[in-house]
């Protein structure tokens, strides 16, 4: 059977208490040992406390064991082995050459000095042309619709084109819509749409 959380709670509390008490005891013991070691380190003479005095004696006895010297033969072998592991001059020269090449490459490519010329890719230019032609087509369709609505009601002269900028370029576009003899504005032929108003004259991108 599963125990309810309540049934476990007192046990947890007990174990927590036990753990806390144990931890406190451990902490207290740690602190006491730390203090004892500190007093041993500080004392120049044998402590009065018998236990600490015995520790102090042993510490002095252990200190009396050292130090030792590395045997001369072992030292000679170590120095000889280390010499044989010295790096060859060609290795150092190759490393220096690589570092120099890297530094030159970094300096060469560093920003500053002359600014790089702006370059427009062919794709970007094509997209720009497509956008401009789209605007042009939409404009022409709007013009067609307006002209259809006003056919017979207005003459080119009524439009007051002369007061507009680029009137000489707009007039040939509008002229066909006001000339019934050329088929009217409802059936605009390619001739009715001279490419006078063009933002871009080059071919469209594929």
């Amino acid at each position: 059977m599963n125990k309810s959380p309540e049934s476990r709670e007192p046990e947890n509390r007990d174990s927590d208490d036990r753990g806390r008490k144990g931890s406190e005891r451990t902490d207290a013991r740690f602190a006491a040992d730390l203090a004892s070691e500190a007093s041993l380190e500080r004392s120049r003479t044998r402590p009065d406390d018998p236990e600490l005095a015995a520790d102090w004696d042993l510490m002095q006895e252990l200190r009396g064991l050292g130090p030792m010297r590395l045997p001369a033969a072992a030292r000679a072998r170590v120095v000889q082995v280390a010499r044989s592991h010295r790096r060859a001059p060609w290795f150092l020269a190759a490393a220096a050459a690589m570092v120099a090449a890297f530094v030159i490459a970094v300096v060469w490519q560093a920003p500053g000095g002359r600014p790089a010329p702006a370059e427009v890719s062919g794709q970007a230019l094509g997209e720009l042309r497509l956008a401009l032609n789209t605007i042009q087509d939409a404009g022409r369709r709007s013009l067609d619709m307006a002209a259809r609505g006003m056919t017979g009601k207005l003459t080119v002269a009524d439009l007051g084109l002369d007061t507009l900028p680029f009137a000489d370029r707009v007039r040939p576009v509008l002229q066909p819509f006001f000339e019934p003899s050329r088929g009217g504005p409802n059936e605009p032929s390619p001739e009715n749409h001279p490419q006078d108003i063009e933002f871009a004259t080059e071919e469209k991108p594929r």
Partner: peptide
């Protein structure tokens, strides 16, 4: 370093 610490290491 060999002369200074070699003895300690050996010990």
């Amino acid at each position: 370093l060999v002369d200074e610490h070699g003895g300690r290491l050996y010990q």
